[in-house]
């Protein structure tokens, strides 16, 4: 049950598709990536509470990472 200012029609509209995101963990940090060719993916978002992770140059959004399934 939702308590939000966004109308339900906006939340559940399926009009535009957005690139699918996959969740992986690298070095203990959960991140969302946009899977590319092979096992390469582009980091789109970090999900961490450690502020230092966001300063790590290897985890910057847009960085291409190699991941294993």
């Amino acid at each position: 049950m939702l308590y939000t200012i966004v109308p339900y029609d906006d939340i559940f509209s399926e009009t535009d598709s957005i690139a699918n995101r996959q969740e992986i963990t690298i070095g203990g940090v959960i991140m969302q990536i946009e899977p590319g060719e092979g096992n390469l993916g582009k980091i789109s978002r970090l999900i961490s509470t450690n502020p230092q992770d966001y300063l790590n140059p290897r985890y910057q959004p847009g960085t291409i990472v190699f991941f294993t399934e």
């Binding site: 049950m1 939702l2 308590y3 939000t4 200012i5 966004v6």
Partner: peptide, 9 residues
Amino acid sequence: TVGGDIEAG
């Protein structure tokens, strides 16, 4: 945040 799930929140 714009809000969301009551139980989760």
